[in-house]
Design a protein around this nucleic acid. Sequence first.
DNA 1: CAGTTAACCTGAGGCAACCTCAGGTAGTCA
DNA 2: TGACTACCTGAGGTTGCCTCAGGTTAACTG
Lengths: 198, 198
Amino acid sequence: MSDAQPYIARRPKRADGARNYDAILSAARKAFETQGADASLEEIAGQAGVAIGTLYRHFPTRASLVEATTREGLAELISRAEALAGTEDPLAALDEWMRRAVRHISTFRGLVGILTRSMYDEGTPSHAACSAMHSSGAHLLRAAQEAGRVREDLTADELFDLLSGAAWVRENALADRDGSPRFVQMVLEGIVTRPAAG
Amino acid sequence: MSDAQPYIARRPKRADGARNYDAILSAARKAFETQGADASLEEIAGQAGVAIGTLYRHFPTRASLVEATTREGLAELISRAEALAGTEDPLAALDEWMRRAVRHISTFRGLVGILTRSMYDEGTPSHAACSAMHSSGAHLLRAAQEAGRVREDLTADELFDLLSGAAWVRENALADRDGSPRFVQMVLEGIVTRPAAG
DNA sequence: CAGTTAACCTGAGGCAACCTCAGGTAGTCA
DNA sequence: TGACTACCTGAGGTTGCCTCAGGTTAACTG
């Protein structure tokens, strides 16, 4: 029942508007990376040298600001998936893509939560990107399954559960220990088909 | 550098104090379950029929309130681990315990985050419980490894990464789809030692 | 270059939640 | 019954959210 249209912020044409848009985006990136997705918007506006109303003009929603800061990263991830889709070893492709995905999805604390919600909720700024990511991931998964390298009963939704679990662990990792690479490794070894003989 | 002593709320002795303590705890449980760990403390106080200052008297910190609401559950989980430690099949024991742990750790949205932080931060109300949980989990893991059922290179910290990833997925699951059972299944199949011949 | 338009900016202010503290209340014990 | 003190209350300072009425200015037009 969400008739709220997803608001995708676009860089405005007027010079001052574009300048402020960029400044806010840059301040937001910094703030999200150091304080997480719930960083103070008023402080972001302040850092950008802009009044709070201006921030809300360009990004009416916290989610829309998050979307804008992660747009390029997700686009890159998706195009990467397309490149990997043509590779000769579909399991290696899936492996590499999963590691990249985990990294992108956990750029800052709180991102995984926003993105997983976006994945299944259409009234959300990041929905389009998440949906595209879902498709490209599903495509790589299917290829690996068709090559007989990954167990048949794993669905794409389940794969994304595993990915977001790994990403969450990375997001919340202590400074000196990121468990996500091993996490992904374990997951991968759990989903590959086993050779009939060791 | 956290010299803040962990504050463990204890049920006060005076009749009115004990009554309010229980009322707050009960209201908090309800609120956390429906709204997550960031439910409004003022609303919890209101539901308990108590002024906000009274809530803060008994639970000076949101974390201390969370600790109190989850204390019994965690204690039960730990005693369950001790019972399972004597079992003849250490892999089955680990399996069952992991599923239980995931369920307990994700009683409400936001809990996993609080508990994983507690696990490595001593200045935290839940640290003792988390630490004990870590030990009992590590014990079950080691038993399964010594029986040759689980890969040797998996550390306890890594096991808890996997567990908390699964719990996070469960916490944030849509109403109609809890992916955590399959998550745990995949994880388990990733960490068991493979029979030399299928 | 002056005039017009609308995109843009500002920041006060209402709202909600957090947390503290000075002052009042009432269980408990002797 | 009186004294002690654990306990309770709720106003109020603080921060962050978000809106909106009113002012500013970039950009276009003749």
